[in-house]
Structures are given as structure tokens and as C-alpha cells.
Design a binder for these strands. Structure first.
Lengths: 226, 226
DNA sequence: TTGACGTAAAAACAAATGTTCGTGTATAAT
DNA sequence: ATTATACACGAACATTTGTTTTTACGTCAA
């Protein structure tokens, strides 16, 4: 992919116009519309530069069909480029609640039902891994009980719903006996379950399997300093 | 908005096809393409039903232009209910390079320039605060000097481009003399600038203001455990 | 029946639109 | 100077494509 700034001024103009037009009208502009906007007198010049943009990897064209182009490259300073229609939008994940010491999270009931629109948070795909947004949920961390896991008050953790975990995975675990939910690395051992803090300065917690209920696997964390 | 089930079978077919086509190709189908797919022999019939769909509030048409239609109504069982066009897409932020939080390594000083397509990352709006995506950039953290600031190796930090900073803010600072960039807490002191790592294992760096160029302020952090 | 109405079909038309070809103009490399 | 390359222009051409017109077939009600 050629850098956007390496494109000619005219080609940059075309890119911005094509994006804005598609955004506004719902379908791409025609060659002549592009030429009119970008002060290009000849359709062949527009066609020439469109092919240049194809070579540069910024658009794709469908030959011989009107308005047969789609934007696949990013335009700096402009929202999402690739395929405006049907674009992979921001994934919405259910923000089911807050996780805090002494307040176990009740996941199965809440998810997919009594969720309000505001209870969704936008999550970039790279934070969801290979999972679909529908099988994940988000929690807002309250308190510093998770500070040993590099997660602090106010952080949002993205998890995948699951009741089991592989050794070494970071999970949200509900300690039924202590009535407390925590984020730890999960290890199933001969004598029970070991919950290992990420920070080696902290000691692991050993619990009986019956006292440890896995709620989900941690996929990612988001934190805003504002 | 007329109920989707109240539309004729043919109109429902048209709606599904128009959506799928637009999704796949990046632009709407022509009247004849719709007719071919929906087994309609005459373009006038397609045109007739398209106008019906306009009346029903499911699509909008732009007269006299090829492929001049856009879907505005929801199709049951299919994605994208809300007005696809004009939807707020994921914000794309330039991922300009890697930054050493421990031993600073050189960072290509091409922030805002020479950005490649692959060097963009999708960032949810809430991590950008009140700033626009165009005035921010992202860095991948290398090293553990910020581990006490809850930032660890591999994290992606989102920064706002700015040349000054308030005391205590976390900034990306360019040490001009060493041609290196580092991620530290910023403190302006009587005898110069102190760049304070959060990790107690690391010593603060004292530099002359002329040798310290602030590149940006840290807005947020993303971390994926996968 | 008769008429109104919604739907469907085919053909013809006019405009929009992508493509191609020949030519011109810089700039840089050889 | 010559060649190569990138970029630009205008005109003609061939389809694509939206629109319109005319005709026809149902259903339903008066």
C-alpha cells in the first residue's frame, strides 16, 4: 500500500471526494462527477487516475459498470475507508456491569435480554480476537482489587463468555465462598484451582473447584486517562 | 414504516438482493440487475416496485442517476438496520511505530507523514476523548519501565499530538540529542525536564528542555491478551 | 357487467456513463 | 538530444441504465 501522502494532490482530492460522496449519497460517484468536483475536464483523466488509485491499492473497480468503484484504503483524517457500505463497523459489546470486590457478577441472565442501548460499548475488532461480538461482554472495573493484574479502577475489560478455562488463561472468577469476583490467571492443579496474579510480587490464591466459578476469559483491556 | 412482512414477496426479495449486492460490491445494483435476480422481465416493473419501496420507507432513490438508491429500512434477519450511510464508523488512528518504555529506541519521526495502510488501527471513540482521530496517533509499547503505570510491553497507547505537556502527564518525549523517543511522566523543573518512569527499578531521566521534545500526550491504552 | 386499482410486461427512448484513441506536456534519466 | 515515464486533454464510441409509454391481467366493489 502506497502512502497516502505519496499520491498526487489530485488523487488525494479524488479519494476524499469519493469517500464523502459515497458517505453522503449511498453510492459512489460517476467518473464525470469526480471530474467536475476535482476540476478535471476529461473523463479519461479521471479514468487514468482511478486506475492509478487501483494500483496504489486505495480503491477497487468493477469494469464497465456505472459507479463501479469502492474505497478500500484508508484516508488520513477521515473516517473508515474500506467499503463504506457493509463496512466492518465498530463491534458492539454488552457492557453488563461492574466488577468489584464483594459484588459477584451475574452474567447469564443479563446477556442478550435486558440490555439497554446505552449498555453497549464500541470495541475495535482487534480486541475481540477471533470471537464474535455476540459471545463477548465487557465489565467496568471498580476498585483496585485487580491492580495485581495490571488492571486498575475504571478500566474496561472485554471477556468471552465461558465456564471453563485453559491453564494460564486470565479469567473472571467468582469466588463463591468469599462472594468476590476477581481477575486472575487460571491454573487447574491436582489439589484444586490456583489463581495466579499477573504480578509476581503477589502470591497466588488456591481455592477449591467448587468455590471457583469461571465467568469468562479475558480477551483485552481498554483504559482512558480522561 | 410499513412492516417488512407486509411487503410483497417480490419486494422482499428485491430488498434482500439490494442489500446483499451492496454489501458485496460496494455500490447498489442497477434496475436490470435487480430484475434479473428477482426474475422480473421488465425494467418498468422493477422501477414500479422500487417506487413502492420508497413509499414504504425502505429505500431512497436519487432520480436519473445510475444505481441511485440506498437502503434506509431494516431487513429482518439481516444486519445493518440503521441508516448505513452516514453511520459513525470506527475511528482509524495512525499507528506510527514502537516506543521503548525501558531503553528508548529510535522512533521514526514521521508522525503524520509516510503512513502506510497497515499502520492504521481502529480505535473506539471513547478512547479518543474529545479529540478527533486525525489529531491522534498510536504507538506500541516495548519494555517494562511503565509497568507501575499499568502499562506493559505490547500495549498500544493512543496519544494526542502536542508539543507541550502539564506536569505529571504521561507523554511521548523525543530526546533530540539521542534521537530516541520514550514514554514517561513529564515534569518541568527548575534545572530542566525530568522524565519519570513509573517503575521504581528505573531511574528518572533529566534532560535539558532543548533536548526534550514532547510528541504527544497519552490519552488511552489498549491491551489484547491474545 | 362495469370501472377502479394494483400489478406486470415489452418496447422504445433519452440520458448517463465507462472506455478507447490520438495527442500534448512536462520532468528526469541515459 | 533522446528516451522513458507520469500526467493531462479532448473527442468519439459503445454500453449501460433510468424513464416513459402502451398494453394486459387480475381482483374487488358497485
Amino acid at each position: 500500500m502506497k502512502a497516502f501522502s505519496r499520491l498526487s494532490k489530485r488523487q488525494q482530492h479524488m479519494m476524499r471526494f469519493m469517500h464523502a460522496y459515497t458517505q453522503k449519497r449511498g453510492f459512489p460517484p460517476s467518473i464525470r462527477e469526480i471530474g467536475e468536483e476535482c476540476d478535471i475536464g476529461s473523463t479519461s483523466v479521471v479514468n487514468y487516475n482511478l486506475n492509478k488509485l487501483v494500483d496504489a491499492g486505495y480503491i477497487e473497480r468493477s469494469g464497465k459498470v456505472s459507479r463501479g468503484l469502492r474505497i478500500v484504503g484508508a484516508i488520513p483524517g477521515v473516517t473508515s475507508a474500506q467499503r463504506v457500505i457493509g463496512a466492518v463497523g465498530p463491534h458492539r459489546v454488552a457492557l453488563v456491569g461492574r466488577i468489584a470486590a464483594g459484588e459477584p457478577i451475574s452474567l447469564p441472565d443479563d446477556i442478550g435480554h435486558h440490555i439497554e442501548e446505552d449498555d453497549y460499548i464500541t470495541v475495535p475488532p482487534n480486541l475481540l480476537g477471533s470471537y464474535d461480538a455476540s459471545e463477548t461482554f465487557a465489565l467496568t472495573v471498580r476498585g483496585d482489587s485487580m491492580i495485581d493484574a495490571m488492571i486498575k479502577d475504571g478500566d474496561i475489560v472485554i471477556l468471552r463468555r465461558q465456564n471453563t478455562a485453559e491453564n494460564g488463561e486470565m479469567v473472571a472468577a467468582w469466588l463463591t465462598e468469599d462472594n468476590e469476583t476477581t481477575l486472575k490467571h487460571f491454573y487447574r492443579e491436582a489439589d484444586g484451582v490456583r489463581l495466579q496474579p499477573a504480578n509476581r510480587d503477589y502470591e497466588p490464591i488456591y481455592v477449591h473447584p467448587a468455590n471457583c466459578e469461571v465467568k469468562g476469559k479475558v480477551l483485552s483491556v481498554m483504559r482512558s486517562y480522561q
